[in-house]
C-alpha cells in the first residue's frame, strides 16, 4: 500500500500575528515555523502506525512550498515516512495547491491520501475536498479514526451531534483531526535517518488560481473586562441580561 501524507508549513501556535507591507503580507519576523498540527499529530502519525503494522507500506510526504518549507518536511521525515516531495511553488490559493498535489497523485497512484482537517493559518479546510474532487475519489472529512483490513478502509467521521462509521474499498482522501492518532516526538534515530531520506523537488504543473488575498486585519481590542464581585453574581446576571443582551 502506498500512502501520501500532505504537509503544510504554518506559524507556531504561539506566534505573534502581525502584518506588513500595508497589511498585505503576514509578518514573518521572529516567527517559528512548524508542521501544521493536524498534518503532523494525526495524518502523519497514523500513516506511520500503519507502516509499523505492515512494513510493506510506503509513505510519501508532500508539501507545496518554496525552499523555506524544507526544514519542515525534514522534520516530518524525522518522524517517519520513506521519501518526501516538495512542489516548488507558493501555496496561497487552495485550488492551485490541490491541483499540484493531484498532478503528483496521478503519477504516483496512491491507495490512500491523508491531509489535516485544516491549516491553522488560513483555516481553509479546502485542499482535501478539492483534491478528492479533482481525482474523483471519495472524500471523508473531519475523520476521528481510520483503519484498514485488506482493501477495506473503516473510517469514523464527525457529523453534527455525533459521528458516523463508514467503509470504502477504493482510494480515498481522508482529512484527519483529533482522535486519529496521538502526537509523537521525533527521536535521534529518526532525525539522523531523515538526513539521508530522498527529498525530491518538482517544478509546479500549470494550474489556475481562483482567489487572492487583498489584505489582512486584526480584531479590534476588547474594551477591558468589567469585574463583578464573587458575592454579587446577581449583578453579572443583570449585566448579561440588560447590557450585553446575551441571556
Amino acid at each position: 500500500m502506498k500512502i501520501l501524507v500532505c504537509i503544510s508549513k504554518t506559524p507556531d501556535t504561539t506566534a505573534k500575528i502581525a502584518f506588513t507591507d500595508g497589511a498585505k503580507k503576514f509578518d514573518e519576523a521572529g516567527v517559528q515555523w512548524i508542521i501544521n498540527p493536524y498534518d503532523e499529530w494525526y495524518a502523519l502519525v497514523r500513516a506511520i502506525e500503519l507502516k509499523e503494522k505492515d512494513p510493506s507500506v510506503i509513505i510519501h510526504l508532500l508539501t507545496v512550498g518554496l525552499a523555506d518549507a524544507e526544514p519542515i518536511i525534514r522534520k516530518a521525515l524525522a518522524l517517519g515516512g520513506d521519501e518526501a516531495i516538495r512542489v516548488n511553488a507558493d501555496s496561497s490559493d487552495s485550488y492551485y495547491v490541490a491541483a499540484q498535489i493531484a498532478a503528483v497523485a496521478n503519477t504516483e497512484k496512491y491507495d490512500l491520501i491523508f491531509t489535516g482537517k485544516e491549516t491553522i493559518d488560513y483555516n481553509g479546510a479546502s485542499v482535501g475536498g478539492m483534491l478528492a474532487a479533482i481525482l474523483d475519489t471519495p472524500y471523508l472529512s473531519l475523520v476521528t479514526s481510520y483503519s484498514i483490513e485488506g482493501n477495506t478502509s473503516t473510517i469514523t467521521r464527525e457529523i453534527e451531534g455525533g459521528e458516523e462509521v463508514l467503509t470504502v474499498n477504493s482510494t480515498v482522501v481522508v482529512s484527519c483531526q483529533k482522535g486519529v492518532a496521538e502526537q509523537r516526538i521525533p527521536n535521534m534515530r529518526g532525525i539522523m535517518a531523515a538526513r539521508t531520506k530522498p527529498l525530491k523537488v518538482l517544478e509546479p504543473s500549470t494550474a489556475d488560481t481562483l482567489t487572492s488575498i487583498e489584505s489582512f486585519e486584526l480584531p479590534a481590542p476588547k474594551a477591558g473586562v468589567k469585574l463583578v464581585s464573587a458575592d454579587n453574581v446577581e449583578e453579572l446576571v443583570k449585566l448579561l441580561h440588560e447590557e450585553a443582551k446575551a441571556i
Binding site: 489584505s215 489582512f216 486585519e217
Partner: peptide
Amino acid sequence: AFANVSIT
C-alpha cells in the same frame, strides 16, 4: 485575524 479575499 481576518483576511479580505478576492474571488477572481
